[in-house]
């Protein structure tokens, strides 16, 4: 079945119909989430009661909008804090890994590469509990030995950051390595011939070349961190990131304020996602 080989009209028609239905299936849940963010009712369900922006800007109960709901605004702040740390750490380590895997030959490279990929095939919940168990064991040992408190090793933002970092780094490494592989080494040689130092060459030639991949992986890391649920759930302390707050509210029974947050998330992640796709190509 390719365009140059004619097929019976009926078959083509059925195929098109299936593709259409599929895309409706894809769009449906996100569409209803967005639509009901504007419904003038306290439940995110039909019937349609009229258009309102109260779920964004409302100040009077029960119509308290997102921007005036303190628990949600605070958790967005928490998520942003976590995401920036995770993204910064993952991109830094990812860049180092890219140089290591692309530029160096050493014994055990294949094994190390495989270990680097492992976080992709470990379920997020397991990643979360293993870090929880390990850090608590360390905290217990240290506290028994010194009599001091080590709250940083108990469930909380530090563990959330480490937990998300532990698997997002793999993605950053893959994206940045792919770009580094396309780099023409003669550019670096030219810089070295012209008297640049090794570090100066990397800073002025190689890193600018990698910049699109670095930025793209930074954006993808922020997105992945923002929406991570499984690993975060196991490691979260008293400050909960957005997904955890939304999950708690969803279990209690939802109001359209959740639709409003979701709409914002959809818009922001679609914009960031498109940006991460097109950015590397523009400077290709």
């Amino acid at each position: 079945m390719i365009p140059t080989i004619p097929q019976p009209a009926f078959v083509t028609w059925c195929y098109r119909a299936y593709v259409t239905v599929f895309f409706i299936y894809l769009a449906l849940p996100l569409t209803v989430v967005c639509v009901f963010a504007f419904n003038n009712s306290v439940f995110p369900s039909p019937p349609w009661e009229g258009f309102t922006l109260a779920w964004f800007f409302g100040t009077e109960a029960p119509f308290i909008g997102v921007f005036n709901e303190r628990s949600i605004m605070r958790s967005i702040g928490t998520s942003a804090f976590v995401a920036l740390w995770v993204s910064g750490l993952a991109v830094t380590v990812g860049t180092c890994n890219a140089f290591l895997f692309v530029r160096h030959e050493f014994r055990g490279k294949a094994l190390l590469y495989m270990l680097m990929l492992l976080p992709l095939i470990i379920p997020g919940v397991i990643l979360g509990i293993s870090i929880l168990v390990f850090s608590s064991a360390i905290a217990n040992t240290l506290e028994d030995a010194t009599g001091l408190w080590f709250d940083g090793l108990r469930p909380g933002l530090i563990l959330v950051i480490l937990g998300q970092f532990s698997f997002i780094t793999t993605f950053a490494t893959l994206v940045i390595s792919a770009r580094l592989q396309k780099f023409d080494p003669s550019l670096e040689e030219a810089a070295l011939n012209l008297g640049a130092t090794k570090l100066g060459t990397v800073r002025q030639i190689t890193l600018p070349f990698l910049m699109p991949a670095i930025l793209a992986s930074a954006i993808v890391s922020v997105l992945m961190s923002f929406e991570n649920f499984n690993t975060t759930l196991m490691l979260v302390g008293s400050d909960s990131p957005l997904t955890i707050t939304m999950f708690d509210k969803l279990k209690q029974g939802s109001t359209p304020v959740l639709n409003a947050v979701s709409l914002l998330l959809i818009v922001i992640s679609a914009v960031l996602g498109l940006f991460s796709l097109f950015f590397p190509q523009r400077r290709g």
Partner: peptide, 24 residues
Amino acid sequence: MIPFWVSELVRTFGWMILLRETGV
């Protein structure tokens, strides 16, 4: 790709609005 960038929580919430007894 777009639904993949959106949080799983949002996607699941969408299905809840669609499928529940008082849903769409």
